[in-house]
Design a protein around this nucleic acid. Sequence first.
DNA 1: TGGGTGACCATAG
DNA 2: ACTATGGCCACCC
Length: 113
Amino acid sequence: MAKTKSDFFEQVFQVVRLIPKGRVTSYGAIANYLGAKSSSRVVGYAMNVAHSQKEYIPAHRVLNRNGQLTGKNHFNNPYLMQELLEKEGIKVENDAVVNLKKYYWDPVIELKL
DNA sequence: TGGGTGACCATAG
DNA sequence: ACTATGGCCACCC
């Protein structure tokens, strides 16, 4: 692993990129996957700079524990996040994912070290 | 070095 | 049901 000042962010981006199309996960799940010591806030912080990354980060697939599109405000257009999700077959209403349990993708379970 | 901030989460009243 | 608060930990100045 290349040692960078933001090695943590890279790991977060890596996991986010691994999220299958049509699936979503939560900040807490990613934080838990990287290690319980990591707080979910840091994951959100990583997403904040995600748009600045060279690689495309499907940040629209990352939601909070409640399934709400809390980060939509950080997209170029607030509607973009919802549209991207619906484009992948995920229904979104009132800034929240419908049937979250059905689309939920937990890296701890799916990637299972 | 230290304080402020945050796209979160859980608990308490 | 809602708001308030603390904890969490990496990043930026």
